[in-house]
Structures are given as structure tokens and as C-alpha cells.
Write a protein that binds this DNA or RNA. Structure first.
Lengths: 203, 203
DNA sequence: CATCATGTTCTCAATTTGTTCTCGTTAATG
DNA sequence: CATTAACGAGAACAAATTGAGAACATGATG
């Protein structure tokens, strides 16, 4: 039996909600999630999905919806990529399972976030406009690190970090011939993270 | 058995409290922690968590709650990273769950593999020795693509691809002033993949 | 021991949520 | 036109969940 558009929407909403929150949504939330106001209607959809075999419910229980099959549209989402040491000469490349699978957090570490780089101030370090910078949360940096620095609690910028001998001043050095080093009192600069990697995507 | 919203809140509060203070909270503190006033109610939640197997209590003892399983908030293994559009000025950066989580395969695509780049032949394209190149499996390329090419079934190399007008010859162009373009008969060159992205890790 | 703080058990009431209905609207179809 | 299906709103009810606080038992402490 085929599902109606709204039934599919509800199913999808529930799947995403559970993926995100580990618990099922309430009928009220489902209703809002698909843009209606009536709990009763939401219940009707859920019941239809139960009849169709996609869901089960603990009757009466709050948040009592359970997903049944991985009927879902999610093929067991693979999040890794094989890393080949050398491109095998001769034979067509084969991904040897378990060869060495890398993923984002294994490769760069855990306590990180990503930001899209805007501007050309670091081109000479190989960091281009549009690249994604991988930043580790940290509040301190060593001389020579490339950091995300917040200036006057206002402007965030990616620059190479240098501290003057007595630590009174901080230099933020662009890697771009043609741009000039900026110098601030240490109190005006707050380090938000240190560059640990970068991504680039060619389109 | 599934937990109710407040039961989860209490469990989370206890976990955090213990992580912070090394001892379990008293019922009064639990109550305040989740925004209620009644010790009795707090006790009811704790008892429910005991029944569900998350906690144990030394009956009567003050601060007598113990955590059981690492049922806790151990994320199985996170493979994504938050992508921040802009670094929020002012406040410390917070990872907003679901903000925009990227992972390797989402970002670069599916049918890919990774190779460590050896040599400096592409430095002027911003591809450095030691970078990881993300390659999409393909056997054909367009002029201007950066490809992994296998020459004489022997040597694999990363270069920019150009085909001569009639397709008889293939130029493999390094992006490095000081290195020269290589030209081969088309039959000697096999494309193994096209560069779609790259990673760099700073150590 | 005396006292207080804390844990435990209980009842009562309020609120939230799930469930079942009816009603009206719209669109498609014969 | 009559019929049917899908849809949305919302009322009404039952049950789950929640909150307050009294009363008592027991641990902690000087």
C-alpha cells in the first residue's frame, strides 16, 4: 500500500526527529513539523503509518512511537572514505575494505568545528577563499599557530598568531604579500580556536 | 522501557552533577535542578530510573545515588563536525546541534577515495606535498580537470588534464613553474579518477 | 542523646498528551 | 450531481505525566 504525501512527510519527520533527539516526537510536535495545528490529524497519520507497518506505538504512552523497519530512505550511511597509500600501479583501483578508512573526526580530532574561509588573507599559506577551515576549540595559541581570533568581541578573523616578547601585544599576521600585519593589545584579542586542518572542494 | 521527558532530565542532571562534584546530588538539589520544588517528586523520578536500571541507591543514605551503566551520554561515535557560517561575535562559540553537520561523504560525495599527495608538482594549484587528495572514481575527464592518471599501467600521477584537439595525445600539466608538461599518446594514459577535493592537516 | 537534614511514602490535584469523534472543505471521478 | 478519499480543525474524554506537600523514618552530626 502506498503512502500519501503527508504520510511520507510525517514518517520522514519522525525519522529525522528520532535521529536528532533519540526520542520520538509528540503529536503536537509532529503537527507543527508538517505545518498543521491539530493533534488529532497528526494522530491519524501516525495511525496510518502503523497500519502500513512503518511504525508501532505504545498505546497511551507519551512519546510512544517506535520506528519499525529501516524502511527508511537511508542506506546505511557510510561516513568514511578509503585512504590509499599509493595508487596501485597496473590494476584498476579497488577499495580494499578496511584498508584505511578515514572520516572527519578520526582524521582531524574531536573537539573541532568548521568554518568557511572568506577572503584572501591567507593565500600564501595555501588557504583560499571558499575553503573550509577545521578549527580546534582553544583559548590559547602558540607563536606561529594560525588562529581564529575575535577582535574587540566583534570581528572574527583567521590569521597567523604572534605574541610580542612581554605578551602585551598580539600580532595577527596575514599570509598575503600586500596585506599588513595587525597589532593589538592582548586584551582586545580573544582566541577562539586554532587551525588544525582544511578542506577544499572543487566544483 | 522508555523514559519520560523528566526522567531523562533527571538522569542527565545526575550525570552532570556527578561528573562535576564526584558525589551524587541530594533530592532537593535534583528538584531544583529540573525546576521543581518537591523532594517527593524528585524521589519518584529517581525511583523510576532505578527501576529502569540506570541508577542504584543505598537506601536511606544521604547522597546515596550511584550511576550504573555507561548508558550515559556516550555518543557511539560522532563522525560529523558542525559547520558554522560565521563565527558568532561576542559569545563563545557553541556547537548548535543540527546546525549544519558535515561529514566526509556528505561533503565530497560518495564514490570517492583518498590519496596522500607526494611531491610538489601541483603546488601552484594549492596542492602541497602531504595533502590528502579526494578523488572521484572516473575513467574520463574534461579538459582542465585535475586527474589521477596512470601512465603505461605503471606510474600514477596527479596532474591537470588536457586533451589535444583530435584526442590523439594527452597533456599532463603540472602546476609548478619549473616543471614541464608531459605529453603522451592517449592509449598510454588511463584516467583513474578526478580530483574533487582535498584535505590538509596541520600538525 | 538531641537535633536537624535528608530520604521515603503517600495522597491529592493540575496539566499534558494520546485517542476518538464529528464537522466542514477540497479535489477527483463516474 | 452524487460519491469517495484526503485533508484540517477542534471538541471531548481517558490516561499518562507531572507537581505540591504532608507525614514519617532514618542517617548525619555535635
Amino acid at each position: 500500500m502506498a503512502l500519501t504525501d503527508n504520510q511520507r512527510a510525517v514518517l520522514s519527520f519522525i525519522q529525522h526527529y528520532i535521529a536528532e533527539n533519540d526520542v520520538s516526537p509528540k503529536l503536537q510536535e509532529i503537527a507543527e513539523g508538517i505545518g498543521i495545528r491539530s493533534r488529532g490529524v497528526a494522530h491519524r497519520y501516525v495511525q496510518a503509518l502503523v497500519d502500513a507497518g512503518f511504525l508501532a506505538i505504545d498505546r497511551g504512552r507519551h512519546r510512544g512511537i517506535r520506528l519499525l523497519k529501516e524502511h527508511s530512505h537511508t542506506p546505511p550511511h557510510k561516513d568514511t572514505m578509503p585512504l590509499l597509500g599509493k595508487i596501485a600501479a597496473g590494476s584498476p583501483i579497488e577499495a580494499i575494505p578496511g584498508e584505511d578508512e578515514i572520516n572527519l573526526t578520526d582524521f582531524f580530532g574531536k573537539n573541532n568545528f568548521a568554518v568557511r574561509v572568506q577572503g584572501d588573507s591567507m593565500v600564501d599559506a595555501g588557504i583560499y577563499d571558499g575553503d573550509i577551515a577545521i578549527i580546534e576549540f582553544r583559548e590559547t595559541a602558540n607563536n606561529g599557530d594560525i588562529v581564529v581570533a575575535l577582535i574587540d568581541e566583534q570581528e572574527a578573523t583567521l590569521k597567523r598568531f604572534k605574541s610580542t616578547p612581554h605578551g602585551r601585544f598580539i600580532q595577527l599576521v596575514p599570509e598575503n604579500r600586500g596585506m599588513e600585519t595587525m597589532v593589538y593589545e592582548a586584551s582586545r584579542v580573544r582566541i577562539q580556536g586554532v587551525l588544525v586542518g582544511q578542506l577544499r572542494k572543487y566544483t
